[in-house]
Write a protein that binds this DNA or RNA. Structure first.
Lengths: 191, 191
DNA sequence: CAATATCTAGGACGGTTGACCTAAACCTTC
DNA sequence: GAAGGTTTAGGTCAACCGTCCTAGATATTG
């Protein structure tokens, strides 16, 4: 692995700030001061704000890919793997309570801004959807697989939105349990 | 009823624009040109942007209140009333596909901005939650009522978020059906 | 050490924003 | 139709935005 470049540090800081404050509300100056560099230097690495956004989305996509690959390796059972997905909500509980889902809120903002990068952001959702779909197929859910994947994705989004709105991390625990029992009761072949 | 004042027209236009483009991304000039008045006149009616935001939220709260009251009047059966709630998703299908849920996206943006009006916006969610909770209580769900209300609210939010992300209005129909069958299978006393 | 490529700092630019002010136009009600 | 409050139009302001430029610092290589 290469050493962490300044460009990486900028992208990482931007990722965090876009998540916490939103894309539009985050200025060059905000990111620069967060990284501890001047705005001019900043401009050397990224010429436009859209370039930063692209880098941030690419970063999130890479992280998602490797996370999904990890889960694929860990659990031999698709049910276990899907459980891994459900548990992101708990792993990121406090951040979600403060800022919602990083992907969902970004997609929503970009859509409202009419920003061209909306599709790129949505493609992160597509990664999850495709991966989940494959898990359900492996479980023998057949044609229903894609619908089940979307359903699970939607449930997660709803939980994140309400947890943020009501500033209630416990709601996440509550709903995660329900999602897991839903998963058990939706398998095609019961024991 | 009083005649529609300029102040009302401004608030209505702001409500629409805040929904479609977001609060931060909407400027005074945008609203003024939408209403067809000058920025100066605009400032006469609302001194600050926060004042407009308050008016917009108050407007949404009033609309929500009267909508809930209407549902209370129409359906004598709590199940029918809850069905009314679920069907907002279909009634606003195309707008939701374009801009998401007006309440959810606003709350999320205000939270990220650290805006003081976040609680006011969340109180719209509270109206729905309280009303739904009362319906479930009337159905005899007892202590579970609040959890069921939150669950339904979360489901709706998730559906709105994904429908917007994937620009897929049909997903709304698909999930609405599921929510209705969920409702039927969660009643305390089956026939 | 010299030469070159890479990185950094900080200032300057047009443009837009929310906010504010003043003067004119529009109603009332005597 | 005069007086006085209400509404409107449009200009001004400082602050900030994304963008761009240049000169100096630092690192790399011959």
């Amino acid at each position: 692995m290469k050493q962490e470049t300044t460009k990486d540090r900028i992208a990482e800081a931007a990722k965090q700030l876009f998540y916490e404050r939103g894309f539009e509300a985050t200025s060059f100056a905000d990111i620069a001061s967060e990284v501890g560099i001047s705005r001019g230097n900043f401009y050397y690495h990224f010429r436009t704000k859209d370039e930063i956004l692209e880098a941030v989305i690419a970063r999130r996509k890479n992280e998602t890919c490797s996370m999904l690959a990890d889960w694929q390796a860990e659990g031999s059972d698709p049910v276990e793997r899907i459980t891994c997905f459900i548990h992101i909500l708990i792993a990121n509980q406090s951040k979600i309570t403060l800022f919602g889902c990083p992907v969902g809120t970004l997609v929503s903002e970009l859509t409202k801004l009419g920003h061209g990068a909306q599709d790129q952001a949505t493609s992160i959702f597509l990664l999850f959807r495709g991966w989940l779909c494959r898990q359900f197929e492996e479980l023998g859910c057949g044609e229903r697989s894609n619908g089940l994947a979307m359903h699970l994705l939607a449930r997660s989004q709803g939980v994140a939105t309400l947890a943020q709105a009501f500033k209630d991390p416990d709601f996440i625990n509550f709903e995660v349990e329900q999602m897991q029992s839903w998963l058990q009761s939706n398998l095609p072949e019961q024991l």
